[in-house]
């Protein structure tokens, strides 16, 4: 065997390569560590508290009962209600805006301004969205004289959802081949028909993926809700509940984690567990849909 061809550990090139590889692997490990730790810590701490009553009972005000803090039923329901309100506001506006950018805007200064604005909006700290709705909706009592309400909470979250939805709709539509649009036009479809029957259905999955990611982000937000939806120890009552403060998982965690009572702290862990599972599920669903899209290409 030719001795020159044999791998030599001790030469400079191979030593440096080994060192750099080791450093890269170590840092990768350090990066992943907090992620895994947070996830497992919450899952274990929260998982311990899991029982059926959690879903059916109301939380008890701190200090009333030192042994139990009740459940988080109204907070789970509240998170779902507020996120739904936010989706109802943000999805039509966001998808509509995305359609405008991708299909109607001709790359002029107006569309550039909107794209730029969307990017800025996606970087806005969520607390700003909360303060904005607090200043315009809550403190002015502009909606039927109600101040803190699930409606205001939904509005604050919708501000955070908008940029993601606009961007994914815009980009999803841009991925649709121009040949399809031309094909539709050449069988006599108007632009509107082309968009509703051909381009939108073709871009359906990337758009839904974007919406799911936006919903997942909104569902986990705390800051905008503290200023707008506040919190409640009761079940939402009928249609009036839209105009009244409402509980949510994230605000419940914020409130109860800082309490000096062990029972409340444990409830906060349980709420964290449920919230993480919810977000994980939404993200996995989005990933799954995205994968389907790529395979179809």
């Amino acid at each position: 065997m030719n001795q020159d061809l044999i791998y030599k550990k001790s030469i400079k090139r191979n030593i440096i390569e080994f060192l750099l590889n080791t450093i890269a692997i170590t840092f990768t490990f350090i990066v992943v560590l907090p992620l895994v730790l947070v996830l497992f810590y919450v899952l274990i701490k929260g998982g311990e508290q899991l029982n059926f009553a959690l879903f059916t009972q109301l939380p008890e005000p701190p200090g009333d009962d030192l042994l139990s803090a009740g459940g988080i039923g109204n907070a789970i329901l509240g998170t779902i209600i507020v996120t739904t309100i936010a989706s109802i506001i943000a999805i039509p506006i966001g998808v509509g805006g995305g359609i405008y950018l991708a299909e109607y805007a001709k790359g002029g200064s107006f569309s550039k301004f909107i794209r730029f604005g969307t990017n800025i909006l996606s970087g806005i700290p969520s607390i700003i969205a909360g303060v904005f709705i607090y200043g315009t909706i809550v403190s002015t009592k502009i909606i039927f004289g109600s101040s803190f309400s699930s409606l205001a909470g939904g509005m604050a979250l919708s501000i955070l959802m908008l940029p993601t939805i606009i961007k994914t709709t815009d980009e999803g539509l841009k991925l649709v081949s121009d040949n399809l649009r031309k094909g539709a036009l050449c069988v006599g479809a108007s632009k509107f028909t082309t968009i509703t029957s051909i381009t939108l259905p073709t871009a359906f999955r990337p758009i839904v993926t974007g919406i799911l990611l936006a919903v997942a982000r909104a569902a986990g937000e705390t800051a905008p809700l503290i200023f707008t939806a506040l919190f409640s120890f009761y079940w939402p009552q009928g249609s009036e509940s839209f105009l009244e403060p409402i509980a949510s998982l994230s605000v419940l965690i914020y409130n109860f984690a800082l309490e000096p009572y062990k029972a409340q702290n444990e409830l906060a862990w349980a709420a964290s567990f449920i919230l993480i599972i919810l977000l994980l599920f939404l993200n996995l669903l989005a990933r799954y849909l995205n994968k389907l899209t790529i395979q179809n290409k």
């Binding site: 040949n179 031309k182 094909g183 036009l185 050449c186 006599g188 028909t193 029957s197």
Partner: peptide
């Protein structure tokens, strides 16, 4: 375009069923 149809260089069927590919244009017309 309803009276003057066009076939392109790259085949561009709609991502729908074969039946719908034909029916789509007829229906909107």
């Amino acid at each position: 375009r309803r009276r003057i149809g066009m076939v392109f260089q790259q085949p561009n069927p709609f991502p729908k069923s074969i039946y719908e590919n034909i029916a789509f244009g007829a229906r909107i017309n």
